[in-house]
Design a protein around this nucleic acid. Structure first.
Lengths: 198, 198
DNA sequence: TAGCACATGTAATAAGTTACATGATTTT
DNA sequence: AAAATCATGTAACTTATTACATGTGCTA
């Protein structure tokens, strides 16, 4: 319909010979490198730090931690606080090398999937009410996200002023801000196009 | 580590009661609404139009078409050109209603997963060579994408000047352009931060 | 005392990719 | 004649989500 092929029967570098690998293990290792935690705490740590660009579900995280322990990349220790039991995980030296090795590997391009754009593409001119509301929602969400992320930006600068990792943490936040600002701009164009089509 | 919870044991609107649904069927229906095609041709149509924000693999598309046929949402017809056999699919009225209904449903927020950002977040200050090269790659890719998309923008305007669907198709391209321009800006910031940290 | 957050896990199932398999046609 | 592309499909497997199950401790 438009341009550039995209076909080809390319067996070019299929991610690495044979093995397809989940990133869940590396997220777990990376988060544990910031300090020991239980599976539950780890999940929260993920949600509250990289949550806006990476999520992990419990059902994935729990078995992954068990697997990492079997491989000796993390060590687990059961703790009892009164009647409450908890299993705390800690990264091992082997886990740290595994993490470091992964950090040096080129990230695979994450193929984006955007359902809103799909609906824009297939939209029926003359029946765009729903589409208009989807765009309005996306606009509101993006603006809200920008506000949240600006808040995080400020509090990060305050809380970790001297931490050498601050610039990197800020970069991830900046990514979110710039991306959502672009989204707001797109929503403006989209609103106009939809209005013109109605 | 930073802010906003993200936890909660939310059983709130789990996508729709019970059923998790793939979008593959709707992409197939939407593409067939633009005209009949074989599975192979359909896959190419997807890649060359919405490919930059949505991909489908053969292994997913083939069985989906078979399933859609069993449900009466598409009709298949085997064609023989000489010795070459082919199965062409066409959307049925039932398929068109299914597609229309989906177009009116609010798109689920697609949770993004960005491996590059993960590596930025976990980066070791003092060991940022690899990271620098990842960012350089991302920058080059984004700039190239912008060029490609600008080309598509122009050729779309020429080829479909009078088509009422043109504004919507253009919007998807604009999304790609604005997003990649934002990415280029981020890469600039990232390069500076990485350089400062080295 | 009811409900919620803390805490830990398992099971079922869906979704999606990769690899395999086969054969025709076109191009070099 | 070999290689690439067109064309159609299947099978194995990985990844990931959702739902279920269970119990503790706090608080309104």
């Amino acid at each position: 319909l438009t341009a550039d092929d995209g076909s080809r029967s390319r067996p070019i570098a299929p991610e690495s010979p044979g093995i397809r690998r989940s990133r869940t293990r590396f997220v777990a290792l990376g988060m544990l490198a910031l300090g020991p935690a239980s599976a539950y705490a780890l999940r929260q740590r993920i949600a509250s730090s990289v949550g806006f660009f990476w999520q992990e579900s419990f059902g994935q995280l729990f078995p992954t931690l068990a697997q990492l322990e079997r491989e000796g990349l993390v060590s687990g220790r059961s703790v009892s606080e009164g009647k409450r039991r908890r299993r705390d995980y800690e990264i091992t030296p082997a886990g740290e090398s595994t993490l470091a090795a992964w950090l040096h590997e080129r990230p695979a391009p994450q193929p984006e999937r955007n359902e809103l754009l799909l609906k824009v593409f297939f939209a029926n001119p003359g029946d765009v009410d729903a589409l208009g509301s989807f765009i309005a929602h996306a606009d509101a969400d993006a603006r809200a996200q920008v506000k949240v992320l600006r808040g995080i930006e400020v509090s990060l600068r305050e809380s970790y002023a001297t931490d050498p990792r601050l610039p990197f943490w800020l970069l991830t936040v900046r990514y979110g801000i710039l991306g959502n600002e672009a989204l707001v701009r797109w929503c403006k164009e989209a609103r106009q196009a939809v209005a013109a089509s109605a």
